[in-house]
Amino acid sequence: MPTPKKNLPKEALVKGHTVGRARFTKISEVEGITVSTAMRKRARSSTDQGLSAEEARRLIIRAYRKS
């Protein structure tokens, strides 16, 4: 006998997936992408400073923006 579907509110549905720093590094290695020392330092300092995701993105964009 099939299990009846539960009606979940829209807020309960998750769209997307968050990947942590360690998992991202492992995925990148499989794809042949290496994380540089500067990238690690930037991520560590963002965490230490308690930057939000948006602020951390701005920091990364500023680092790689062409002058």
Rank of each mutant, 00 (worst) to 15 (best):
P2A: 15
P2F: 08
P2R: 13
P2V: 10
P2C: 14
T3G: 13
P4T: 09
P4V: 11
K5H: 06
K5A: 15
K5Y: 08
K6T: 15
K6C: 13
K6Y: 08
N7Q: 14
N7K: 11
N7H: 09
L8Q: 08
L8I: 09
L8F: 11
L8H: 12
P9T: 05
P9N: 15
P9L: 11
P9F: 06
P9G: 02
K10A: 13
K10H: 07
K10D: 10
K10T: 08
K10L: 14
E11L: 10
E11I: 04
A12L: 06
A12G: 10
A12T: 09
V14W: 02
V14A: 14
V14F: 04
K15E: 13
G16F: 02
G16L: 00
T18S: 05
T18H: 02
T18M: 06
T18C: 05
T18G: 02
V19L: 08
G20I: 02
R21N: 07
R21A: 15
R21M: 08
R21W: 02
A22H: 06
R23F: 07
R23I: 15
R23K: 13
R23E: 15
F24W: 05
F24M: 13
T25A: 15
T25C: 10
T25M: 06
T25P: 01
T25R: 07
T25V: 13
T25W: 00
K26A: 15
K26F: 02
S28I: 02
E29S: 07
E29T: 10
E29W: 02
V30S: 12
V30C: 05
G32P: 03
G32Y: 00
I33C: 06
I33A: 14
I33L: 11
V35P: 04
V35G: 09
S36D: 10
S36T: 15
T37R: 05
T37Y: 01
T37D: 09
A38M: 06
M39E: 07
R40L: 11
R40V: 04
R40P: 00
R40N: 08
R40T: 07
R40D: 12
R40H: 05
K41W: 01
K41N: 05
K41G: 14
R42D: 05
R42P: 00
A43V: 03
A43C: 03
R44T: 06
R44C: 03
S45I: 12
S46V: 04
T47R: 10
T47P: 00
D48A: 08
D48E: 12
Q49C: 05
Q49N: 07
Q49W: 00
G50E: 05
G50M: 01
G50L: 03
L51D: 09
S52V: 04
A53P: 01
A53V: 03
A53T: 04
E54R: 07
E54W: 00
E55G: 11
E55I: 03
A56P: 00
R57F: 05
R58Q: 10
R58G: 09
R58T: 06
L59E: 13
L59V: 10
L59Q: 14
L59A: 15
L59K: 10
I60T: 12
I61Y: 02
I61Q: 11
R62Q: 12
R62P: 00
A63K: 05
A63Q: 09
R65G: 06
R65K: 10
S67Y: 00
S67P: 04
